[in-house]
Design a protein around this nucleic acid. Structure first.
Length: 467
DNA sequence: TGAAATGTTGGGGCG
DNA sequence: ACGCCCCAACATTTC
């Protein structure tokens, strides 16, 4: 029988894994994972921690099929070259990752599968022959097509009896020797089993309130599947069909709207990869060229304050601290902190993009870049430049009681809800009573909102003239 | 997947 | 009773 190397990348699952399933149908499967500095599966430390646990889970899952995961590190092409020689494999099967280079000069045939999206949409063009610029048009087009049914994992997979030298997962040194990594890892349960369980659970409960609940960061109203999706521990096509199944059961109109809203989020993910395909520079360069001339500030101190959650705006600080402590931030709050960094502090969005890449467990290059460019207003489909989030109002709207803030900014835990979004307005006796000493225990706002708003509008007006 | 400024309307207090 | 002013409350426009 033919020996086939199945190279795992960000597709750390057995169910509906197209490369694995195709290989299993054809021959003996030899699972391989390569950690390479040149083509990194993860860009940041938080995601690296998670990768450690995800690999453990994958290894375990493979072993239930008597498959042994071989782990190597080094230059991807060189490692593959060597491994092909060792195993005498006839082919390499792997799932193509949009936005990543294909393997260079392979000694044998590399069969790529399109596995990470609902469907390949890179060939979508509008009536004028151009790519879709705006999400809503893309969305409508997308709905005209069917998503391929997820494939069953074969119960029996032919495996090699030979064992190949392998690094241990520990030897990849993915875990920094910091207490921080322990804190972050404690919030996650890696593996496809956990992913599917979480998804089933969400479909039975929270999804029905998703439309309303998703904007309230103190609620557990989102699916929390982004990390599993980012590592390919759950198949998005499996998700899609389970979602459709749940939709069939719904009679209540509000519930139906919630399902449709969630479905739109999945299609946003498709849109992000569609954009990345057509704009490969999206993760680093503003897509609107006039942003070359934007008067960005170069203030390291404010960046540091932002990263640490010391901006003096409670909702912003709560989000940044949730990110640091858990490797995740609620999406509503991501928009608020992004707007704050770019529009209130006038820091270039790439600084935020990099920070998210380093600290988000669910980091996804396409979604992150699309979202930052949307927030900064420099994307093709972007928030208008004048849309400047007021961090006080956003807090009042979406965290009215301050529950979310109080969880992540404990030094404000006893401030009355009335003042939780603007502690500097609280009367001195109240502050004293709840042991808040502004400037000491919690900072004053690092920039005044009204001033910052006007400064941002002026900055955007400046490039608008040039553009 | 905003917010602020400006405009309009209508009820109520008051002389 | 009436005009006047104030100002919510809502609508529109502007950034």
């Amino acid at each position: 029988m033919e020996k086939i190397i199945v190279l795992f990348q960000k597709d750390l699952r057995l169910h509906d894994n197209l490369a694995l399933i195709a290989a299993a149908k054809r021959g003996v499967v030899i699972p391989l994972f390569i950690f390479s500095e040149d083509d990194r599966i993860v860009r940041g430390s938080a995601a690296a921690c998670y990768l450690h646990d995800a690999l453990c889970a994958l290894k375990e899952e493979l072993s239930t099929k008597q498959l042994t995961l071989t782990i190597r590190s080094g230059n991807k092409s060189e490692v593959l070259h060597q491994f092909v020689k060792e195993t005498g494999a006839q082919a390499i099967y792997t799932n193509y990752r949009t936005g990543n280079e294909k393997i260079e000069n392979p000694s044998i045939y590399v069969h790529y599968f399109s596995d990470m999206l609902l469907r390949s949409s890179e060939d979508f063009y509008n009536v004028t022959g151009d790519t879709y610029k705006i999400y809503s048009a893309f969305y409508k087009r997308f709905l005209h097509y069917t998503v391929e049914q997820p494939k069953q994992t074969p119960t029996q997979i032919a495996h090699s009896t030979e064992l190949y030298p392998s690094l241990t997962i520990e030897q990849l040194a993915l875990l920094p020797t910091l207490a921080w990594s322990t804190t972050v890892r404690a919030h996650w349960q890696a593996g496809e089993h956990s992913a599917l369980k979480k998804w089933r659970n969400f479909l039975q409960n929270e999804i029905y309130d998703y439309k309303e609940g998703r904007d309230i960061p103190s609620q557990q109203a989102t699916s929390m599947l982004s990390t599993y999706l980012a590592f390919g521990e759950i198949s998005v096509r499996t998700m899609w069909y389970m979602l459709k199944e749940a939709q069939q059961m719904i009679l209540n109109n509000a519930h139906l709207e919630s399902v449709v809203t969630y479905e739109k989020q999945l299609i946003w993910r498709e849109f992000a990869y569609y954009k990345l395909t057509h704009y490969p520079t999206m993760p680093t360069m503003s897509l609107r060229s006039q942003f070359q001339a934007f008067p960005w500030q170069e203030d390291c101190t404010v960046v540091d304050n932002w990263q640490k959650g010391h901006t003096g705006y409670p909702i912003v600080d709560a989000g940044m601290r949730q990110l640091w402590q858990t490797g995740w931030m609620h999406n509503r709050v991501r928009m608020i902190v992004a707007s704050f960094l770019v529009k209130h502090l006038l820091i270039r969005w790439q600084v935020g993009e990099r920070w998210f890449a380093d600290t988000l467990v669910d980091f996804d290059v396409a979604i992150n870049a699309l979202s930052w460019q949307w927030s900064a207003g420099c994307g093709i489909d972007a928030a208008p430049y004048f849309r400047i989030f007021n961090p006080i109002l956003q807090g009042q709207k979406f965290d009215a009681t301050g529950e979310y803030i109080k969880k992540w900014v404990p030094e404000l835990a006893h401030i009355p809800a009335e003042y939780i979004h603007e502690p500097w307005k609280a009367p001195a006796p109240i502050l004293k009573n709840v042991r808040v000493n502004l400037g000491e225990t919690y900072p004053y706002p690092i920039v005044d909102h009204v001033f910052a708003r006007e400064r941002a509008l002026a900055a955007y007006a400046q490039i608008k003239r040039k553009g």
